[in-house]
């Protein structure tokens, strides 16, 4: 591959970055907003759906069919289809598909996580006299945390990378730097956008990992959960097609 960059044009012009710090910062803030809100919405929806599927196993296969279909929807196409309803320059247009995507990743995670609760643990919680709600909150959900968090990490990292596709309809957070750089044949904003997107994903992943440690202090010593969540992370989808 032959470098085509205009004669004397470096990959990164530091002075451009210096002059545009404010703009870059506000795009970064946009990017964070557009990735975090769908995560929260997706999680809020996935928890009850996952709980319902874990309780009534019969509804899980059809729900899984729907989430698999959602997962397969190309983000750009969904943005386009939403334009008549939410508008072309709107953040909502970008956030709706990301929330659906988060949902499709998290529902199986919640179901798998609850399935990972050993039966004897559930039984002893009943024996101690925990009611269904307390059992769920005090026993089952905490044990499901590692698997759910693994799904959450996958969804978060993917969302952060997907937000930038929104630049094609004018709201892409850091993605706007890509289209801007392309239109001006100027690599600096593109490189800045890529680096910041990756950095953001790494930071978010690190924060989620720290949160998981905080939520599951008992797992800190044992390597088993780490391995389990790594296996979960390793396979983007474990559900049958």
């Amino acid at each position: 591959m032959i470098p085509l960059v205009t004669e004397g044009e470096p990959l990164v012009r530091w002075d451009w970055i210096g002059r545009n710090l404010g703009e870059i910062g506000s795009l970064l803030a946009d990017h964070v907003l557009m990735s975090v809100v769908p995560i929260l919405v997706g999680l809020a929806a996935a928890l009850p759906i996952g709980l319902a599927c874990a309780r009534w196993r019969r509804i899980y296969p059809p729900v899984l069919g729907v989430t698999n279909a959602l997962y397969a929807l190309p983000a750009i196409a969904v943005f386009i289809m939403l334009i008549p309803f939410t508008g072309i320059g709107s953040r909502t247009t970008v956030m709706i598909p990301l929330a659906l995507y988060t949902l499709s990743v998290l529902v199986p995670s919640v179901v798998d996580g609850l399935a990972a609760v050993p039966d004897h643990v559930r039984q002893s919680a009943v024996a101690i006299g925990f009611g269904p709600v307390r059992r769920l909150v005090r026993v089952e959900l905490p044990i499901a945390v590692p698997v759910v968090m693994a799904g959450l990490r996958v969804a978060t990292v993917s969302n952060i990378s997907l937000v930038s596709v929104g630049a094609l309809i004018g709201v892409g957070g850091l993605g706007d730097l890509f289209t801007d750089g392309f239109n001006r044949d100027f690599p600096t904003p593109i490189v800045v956008g890529i680096v910041l997107t990756i950095a953001l994903a790494l930071v978010a992943d690190g924060l989620l990992l720290a949160l998981q440690r905080l939520l599951t202090p008992w797992a800190r010593a044992g390597a088993r959960d780490a391995r389990a969540s790594r296996a979960r992370l390793a396979s983007p989808e474990r559900t049958a097609p």
Binding site: V154, V157, S158, I160, S161, L162, S164, V165, A167, L168, G172, L174, G175, L177, F178, T179, I190, G193, I194, T197, I198, A201, L202, D205
Partner: peptide
């Protein structure tokens, strides 16, 4: 690699 932004790349 999941973190790589498609469009930017």
């Amino acid at each position: 690699a999941r973190a790589l932004p498609t469009l930017g790349l």
